[in-house]
Design a protein around this nucleic acid. Sequence first.
DNA 1: CGGCCGGCTGTAATCGCTTACAATACGTCA
DNA 2: TGACGTATTGTAAGCGATTACAGCCGGCCG
Lengths: 330, 330
Amino acid sequence: MNLNAVARLAGVSTATVSRVLNNSGTVTPRTRARVLKAAAELNYYPNLHARSLAGGKSRTLGVIVSNIENPFFLDIYQAVETGAEARGYEVVVANTDYRPDQLTARIRLMIGRRVSGLAVIVSEMDPALIEDLSSSGIPVVFYDVGAPRRNITNVKVNYRRGIEKMVEYLHGMGHRKLGFLGHHAMLAPLNERMRAVLDAVESRAGQMEVQTSAGADTLEGGRQAARALLATGYRPTAIVCVNDFMAIGALRELREQGIRVPRDISVTGFDNINLSEFCFPALTTIHIPRERIGQTICDCLIAREGDSPGNREITIDPELVVRDSTGPRR
Amino acid sequence: MNLNAVARLAGVSTATVSRVLNNSGTVTPRTRARVLKAAAELNYYPNLHARSLAGGKSRTLGVIVSNIENPFFLDIYQAVETGAEARGYEVVVANTDYRPDQLTARIRLMIGRRVSGLAVIVSEMDPALIEDLSSSGIPVVFYDVGAPRRNITNVKVNYRRGIEKMVEYLHGMGHRKLGFLGHHAMLAPLNERMRAVLDAVESRAGQMEVQTSAGADTLEGGRQAARALLATGYRPTAIVCVNDFMAIGALRELREQGIRVPRDISVTGFDNINLSEFCFPALTTIHIPRERIGQTICDCLIAREGDSPGNREITIDPELVVRDSTGPRR
DNA sequence: CGGCCGGCTGTAATCGCTTACAATACGTCA
DNA sequence: TGACGTATTGTAAGCGATTACAGCCGGCCG
């Protein structure tokens, strides 16, 4: 079932069929109707591969995330999708599970698909890959990693600032012994987020201390990280989690150990995913505007005529949201 | 950056390059090395559109879901992804938000992409679309809707049975006044799930009664549906939710109204998503084996040589999982 | 020494579409 | 009536791969 078949049935040339189907050029209403009728009759759907091959553009955006199970990433994907749809673009999403080899494979795949723009929302990036992408020429947005280049825009969240607000808040509530729960992808000692916590604590040296623990970036991972932390015998009065998703896992572990939150231990998240309001107790967290990030990504990737893509850096300043999972030290 | 460029740089023909890149045919180790070097040097990534066009196959599976925000759908998608990856296939996912027009558009898109298989995991289907898909000839799996055809397989969960188990369990716990929380896509009076509840209650006529309420298939939707139900003045002793996701929303509403679960009201979910163990109280629910469903879908869509696709119906019998959100009536 | 065979490469058709350019038709105006 | 501009349609050259088929070359056998 191809253009040719439709053309034959309608008694016109393929060019005309193409024009009708794309609303381009000029076509008599009569012919247009004939063509549409033929297409419908044959149950014809244009081959999009052929279309992008011939047209040289795919009208498709790629989104690569570390863990689509974590609502934070899902929200960003959905925001991009919304923006893309409004502009007549498709979105394809891929997951890396924090695995560097997967990241490489996914990026290859996206380049192979000749996406017209690519958003890479992952925690760590091999510089070689950045180089690859940069030289590929397609507009790229990196989230939270890398530096602007010709065709590369960076969206950064000021995590450091967010963590500082959080630690300051906890300090103000009298907390001095902290726990920090991260996920494995953050084990790298120079990880931005972990560093931010350590630095924030160190800047109040002598007053505060912190111990860290890690698990997978899942509910269960958060639970296990909490369990591991407590199993060491360390007794923090507040546990800072790298994100809300893991915090919810931690909440469960504490609940099952009979530790009351926030009475015995305060718990904080990060991201302010919807779920953070629906868990019990509702999480104190840091708000990251995922919707805005998604829009920004679209704006950068789908550059309007004459707009040059890339070479910008956009920073987002996160805000503290206090709910029920934190309270004064007792 | 195309095959031709690589061929020229390597001093061979495009056919040879193609053979090297696909590990097909026979190529001297020396030439192979030259080609690979040239490809690497040029930063060459094959154009997948051209590839599927020429090859006539896309090695891509499509998955269409109603609401990817609901972990139930996400889990199925991920399971399909896992199975597909193991077989060297890609997966593209699309969301309908329960909108029939979106469903049509997404199916068109998938056909346009010439996916080699399509899984449609949505609640309602226009028969015309089924017809369309059937005649398109691509292997299709419908979840929970439609009937087997030449190239169509059906995976069905015996909801009726699941709901019956649930109602029976609640009845056994002494509950007589039920509430049912659904989502809007189920408002259609002949909806399978709602009917199952009504039937289960009616079969115990005179003893049990039920009132229903609906919201969006989101956390907030569950909360609002719960609020709406209670706002009518109706006081059920147990609330049955159409799925876990909405149940978690309902839990929040009850908590905020000072209604204790399960002391004052029991709450049940459906699906047994991971979250159902992590919310508070942990949900009594019905287990739907998402992983197995995903595998089954892969098995059906990626038929081995000589295997004829479609024309089967697979039924899954769900199981009751009792946790902390339900208890005896008081 | 000629013919044949098998391993390696190259040539060119093909996939289904877009699009620049050519061709045709038709109405208008002098 | 003939020239001409405009609106509509057709012709055919790509887009970047795959792949059937043909060609070439060296070795082996009779």
